[in-house]
Nucleic acid binder design. Structure first.
Length: 502
RNA sequence: GGCUCGUUGGUCAAGUGGUCAAGACGCCGCCCUCUCAAGGCGGAAUCACGAGUUCAAUUCUCGUACGAGCUGCCA
């Protein structure tokens, strides 16, 4: 039989990374076996519905590459795929009534007040176990209540005796005492089904073979099993997934900055990297590979290798992985992502022509911009890292002349000043400021002088950047800045050092 | 409180009744090098605890501790 999985989100906002991973695994389980993946919208809680949330779901699935075979916008044989529409079609009420007829469910007319009185507080928590009061209502009274239009819910009738067992493909056999299971509400007083009921009915009606969901449903699954049995339906395969937590081992929160896919994208992460990283939280492949495209994942994903224990979402590793994706990107694509941040560093967001005028007044050619782009490719993990790394191109920072003194480079104020003073005329005479030409002329000077490279190159790089560390070295920076700006910065360096020496 | 699940370096994790207990991120060091990256090489760091079974337990069993989830007319 063909595998059918479904992703069944509630339209309540952005897609949490935990939900994203669930969707991904559902997708992979289906695709790995050449099965079908379905999108179903679970909007049975009208109060939690958020405007625009449906679009977020569509967009996120699109951006992550989770294409589905059937869904609200992709008609199939099991529609409609939105639960509120299925409510209108009367599907859930019909099935609930079947259970009532079988004695597996019953009408309940209990008021809020009565239910409230059933609550007890244990260890600071309010708990409530329904007492089956309405199960024993005489038929005539039920009918009279219904005729009178009294509000009602339909509850599942779970026996007090015995146990219920099911087998989860990850966690193994799980058994609970029936008396621990509450007579949960199936149909709410507004006529909508609860998640618990709609989920079971729809999964069955839509031919779902593998129910994949978060671990939080593990302990309520016995109730769903009882529902399947009450209907006389074959339960699907259950695959419960371990939790994803934050660094403190608590459920992911908005505060920790990694609550949703969209948040991460806004922070500069690539969808492919997010998907790749999330795939590895709670699952591992057979080999040591870690970088997987969606196609790779489909090929190697075996859900039996999903593990049981919760995983901490590690931003540091996500950043590393994102960096790996950036490094292996085609240049054109990389440029598309990175260019906005380059322009941002030069404070000319939006319309910059073929050249950029820096805050210091230098004019950088487009070739120079591309060179900066190139330098950054192996030096960033996310694109927003760019501006602060290249700000010195835009404006020479005020710096401490002590920076010229570097023990390992064997430089100090005196010999740095000497280097700058001696190379200045050389660089003034130099017309070609290409990398190779600069290299040749300065290396020539170094050779004649008979000193180590660092003695000359450290002060030069310091002078043209004003920073302790920079992407690229003196030659790269001078090539990008061009003759005029490079010389200006070297002269500033000489000035600073002269004050220092005297 | 009850029920359910979990526990291998800081993090993600592989793995098995007998292993020097993989690999990755991070960290540290070295190489390369004009700095920073990238790249290469190396290092520190793990089987929660206590019993039991066994010739042998990280692996199996039971307890304990800790963590998480559920205990909604939320999903």
């Amino acid at each position: 039989m063909k595998i059918r999985t479904r992703y069944a989100p509630s339209p309540t906002g952005r897609m949490h990374v935990g939900n994203l991973r669930t969707a991904l695994y559902e997708y992979l389980i289906a695709r790995h076996e050449d099965g079908e993946f379905i999108l179903r919208i679970e909007d049975t809680d009208q109060e939690r519905f958020v405007e625009g949330a449906l679009d977020i779901i569509y967009r996120t699935l699109e951006e992550t590459g989770l294409d589905y075979d059937e869904g609200p916008d992709k008609p199939g044989d099991c529609g409609p795929y939105v639960q509120s529409e299925r409510v209108s079609a009367g599907i859930y009420m019909e099935y609930a009534k079947k259970l009532v007829e079988k004695g597996e469910a019953y009408y309940c007319f209990c008021t809020k007040e009565r239910l409230e009185s059933l609550k007890t507080t244990v260890a600071g928590k309010e708990i409530m176990l329904y007492d089956k009061h309405c199960l024993h209502l005489p038929k005539e009274e039920i009918q009279a209540n219904l005729d009178a239009g009294m509000p009602f819910v339909i509850r599942q009738n779970i026996p007090d005796e015995g146990t219920t067992t099911f087998v989860d493909d990850i966690y193994g056999a799980i058994t609970v005492e029936n008396k621990e299971l509450d007579d949960m509400v199936l149909i709410k007083s507004d006529g909508f089904p609860t998640y618990n009921f709609a989920n079971v009915v729809d999964d069955h009606l839509m031919g779902i073979t593998h129910v994949v969901r978060g671990n939080e449903y593990l302990s309520s699954t016995p109730k769903y099993i009882r529902l399947y049995e009450a209907f006389g339906w074959e339960p699907p395969v259950f695959v419960h997934l371990p939790l994803i937590t934050d660094e403190e081992h608590h459920k992911l929160s908005k505060r920790s900055g990694h609550s949703s896919f969209e948040d991460l994208v806004e922070q500069g992460f690539l969808p492919e990297a997010i998907v790749n990283y999330v795939a590895l939280l709670g699952w591992s492949p057979e080999g040591n590979e870690e970088i997987f495209s969606m196609q790779d994942l489909i090929k190697v994903f075996d859900y039996r290798r999903v593990n049981k224990s919760p995983a901490v979402f590690d931003m540091v590793k996500l950043r590393w992985m994102n960096g790996e994706y950036i490094k292996s990107m085609e240049f054109e694509e990389y440029e598309k992502y990175a260019m906005p941040y380059i322009l941002k560093a030069f404070k000319c967001e939006g319309n910059c022509a073929d050249t950029i005028t820096t805050s210091d007044g230098a004019v950088l050619s487009w070739e120079s911009i591309l060179k900066i782009l190139e330098l950054m490719k192996t030096r960033i993990e996310i694109f927003p890292d760019i501006p602060e790394k290249i700000d010195f191109f835009d404006t020479l920072p005020e710096y401490d002349p002590a920076m010229y003194t570097h023990k390992k480079m064997k430089t100090n104020s005196e010999n740095s000043l000497e280097t700058l003073k001696e190379t200045l005329p050389v660089l003034e005479a130099q017309e070609d400021y290409s990398l190779d030409a600069l290299h040749d002329v300065i290396m020539g000077y170094i050779e004649k002088k008979g000193v180590k490279n660092g003695v000359v190159l450290w002060p030069l790089r310091t002078a043209v950047s004003g920073k302790q560390s920079t992407p690229g070295g003196a030659f790269e920076i001078m090539e990008i800045l061009g003759k005029e700006e490079s010389l200006r910065r070297i002269r500033i360096g000489i000035e600073l050092l002269e004050k220092e020496v005297h």
